[in-house]
Every structure is written in structure tokens, then in C-alpha cells.
């Protein structure tokens, strides 16, 4: 192209840059705005992107520290944001480790073994994976309600139930790991088996160490998905101190009691780490996401 139209190329480049810059500013505006609002005084302050009346009130409240206003009144933190964040991380950590364990072992069998029903199971998993959990919430609620009467730590309003319920979403991860396993040559494991290793030993000592990168990717993906899970947590968790961030955060903007400024600080505080993790690992995550599923 460049050889054919040298004269207009500069104008076109400039145009492309302008268009991109315009679009980028549209995209980034809401994010910058929220950062700005988190530093503004009061809950409904308006103004320019750089706050005119700078205040750390919302940030102190987000960290759970009571804030003393200029007129001497003390404002108590409205919601336990840090506790919610901790709940989210706790649930996400345990459930993504369990998901990783489940999907790695099955991916190994699907990639390396031959057994009855392999193809239908793999296809069936892909189909079942497309059902959103929202649709069977009544059933999940009933299941954990009854289970909780027998095993209290798996009942409604426990983190155990939320962790367990997330174990259904393994099909995508199985497919991702299976694809990676298949790209690794099997001769190393074969050699190990010839030397007397069992299938489990070949898997655990040979294949797993070779697959650390994909295991990291799946772990991070499962972690982020679990942090963002909303429908199941909104039904299974009831008490304020049990909520995860995804369910709790909306209380800032409840219809009757809107705390826009407080929300902004809490949003930046809790959203920033997740965003940074995503951006840092994007090279690996994007491959996993675009090969199969859609992030919510």
C-alpha cells in the first residue's frame, strides 16, 4: 500500500491516530472519572477531572477507618469493603485451586488415554457448559438448603456452598489444558512408563512440571471468573459480613441510598488489583479466553 499512495499516507496516519485517540479517551473517561470522584469531597460532588476540593474521606472509609469531617462529625464506614474483598479472594483462591486440580487430571485422561465414551463426554461437556447458572439457581438453592440441614458448613449463607457450586464450571478449563497437553510430545512419559513408572507417576513427575505455564493461566482465569461471579453468590450468601465483593458493591448504589463517592473509592481499591493482574497476564489469558469462552 505504502508504495502506491505515498502522498496521502501522512494524512491517513494522522487521521488514524486522531480516531484512535478519540476512541481511547471515550473508553478511558469513565475509569478516570471514577478515580477523580473518589478524591472529591462529599458523595455527589461534580466538577472537572482534577478535583477542586481534594479529600481523602472516601478512601479512609473504604479502608474501614472512620473519618472526621471538618465540622467535627465522625462518619462511620458504610460497608465492610475490605472484608468483602477478603471473602472474594478466599472463595476465589480455594475454588480455583480445586478447579485446577479437577480439570488437570481429567485433561490428562482426555489427552493421553483411550476409553469408552470419551468423545461424547467431551462434546457433552461443551454443551452443558453453555447453560448459565442463573437458570438453575432455584435447584442450586434447594440443593444447598437441604445439604445445609445435614452438613452445616455447606448450607445457604456459607462460603463452602459457593466454592462447591463453582466446581461445575470446569469444561472450558479441561479443553484449554487438554489442548496444551496434546501439544507436548508423549515420548518422555512413554520412556518413564517403560522404566516402570505408573500412569499417575508419568503424569505427576513428567507431564505436570512441563505444563506449569498453562496451569498458571487456568488458575488465573478461574480466579478472575470466581471473583466476578455474581448470580450464585447473590442467592447463596445472605449476611452482610459473608458477601463477596461482586454482590456487596452494588449496595453502594442501591435505589434509596446512593453513595457515589464512597463507591468510587471502593471500586478503585478493589478493582485495581484485579485489573493489574489481568493486564500483567494478558498475553497468556487472552489466548485462553479467545480460544473458547467469553468473559463476563
Amino acid at each position: 500500500m505504502a508504495m502506491v499512495q505515498p502522498r496521502t499516507i501522512r494524512a491517513r496516519k494522522l487521521g488514524a491516530h486522531l480516531a484512535l485517540l478519540g476512541f481511547v479517551s471515550l473508553v478511558v473517561f469513565p475509569l478516570l472519572l471514577v478515580i477523580s470522584i473518589s478524591f472529591r469531597e462529599g458523595n455527589f460532588a461534580t466538577g472537572s477531572l482534577i478535583p477542586e476540593r481534594f479529600s481523602l474521606e472516601h478512601w479512609a472509609l473504604a479502608f474501614g477507618i472512620p473519618w472526621e469531617r471538618a465540622d467535627g462529625s465522625i462518619v462511620q464506614p458504610p460497608f465492610p469493603v475490605l472484608l468483602w474483598l477478603w471473602n472474594s479472594i478466599k472463595v476465589a483462591l480455594v475454588s480455583s485451586l480445586m478447579i485446577l486440580a479437577l480439570s488437570t487430571t481429567s485433561a490428562y485422561a482426555f489427552a493421553r488415554m483411550r476409553f469408552k465414551g470419551k468423545a461424547p463426554i467431551l462434546k457433552g461437556m461443551l454443551i452443558f457448559q453453555m447453560f448459565p447458572a442463573v437458570l438453575s439457581l432455584v435447584a442450586l438453592y434447594a440443593l444447598f438448603d437441604r445439604l445445609g440441614q445435614l452438613v452445616p458448613w455447606l448450607g445457604i449463607n456459607t462460603h463452602g456452598s459457593l466454592i462447591l457450586a463453582s466446581l461445575g464450571a470446569v469444561a472450558l478449563h479441561i479443553w484449554t489444558i487438554k489442548g496444551y497437553f496434546e501439544s507436548i510430545d508423549g515420548s518422555l512419559e512413554e520412556a518413564a512408563v517403560v522404566d516402570g513408572a505408573s500412569t499417575w507417576q508419568a503424569f505427576y513427575h513428567i507431564l505436570l512440571p512441563l505444563s506449569v505455564p498453562i496451569l498458571m493461566v487456568v488458575f488465573i482465569l478461574a480466579f478472575i471468573m470466581s471473583i466476578m461471579e455474581y448470580p450464585m453468590a447473590s442467592v447463596l450468601l445472605l449476611d452482610e459480613d459473608k458477601l463477596t465483593l461482586a454482590v456487596g458493591a452494588q449496595q453502594y448504589l442501591a435505589d434509596h441510598n446512593q453513595r457515589w463517592g464512597d463507591f468510587a473509592a471502593a471500586a478503585v481499591l478493589s478493582g485495581l488489583p484485579i485489573t493489574l493482574v489481568f493486564l500483567l497476564c494478558q498475553r497468556w489469558i487472552v489466548g485462553g479466553l479467545t480460544s473458547g469462552g467469553v468473559k463476563g
Binding site: 473508553v27 471473583i227 461482586a246 478493589s270 478493582g271 494478558q282
Partner: peptide, 12 residues
Amino acid sequence: LLILPYAVPAFI
């Protein structure tokens, strides 16, 4: 910058 909306958690 363009994939930022993807990186920020949707619920936020």
C-alpha cells in the same frame, strides 16, 4: 488502553 474495559471487573 483499548482492552482496559475487558480487564476491569464487569461488576465494577
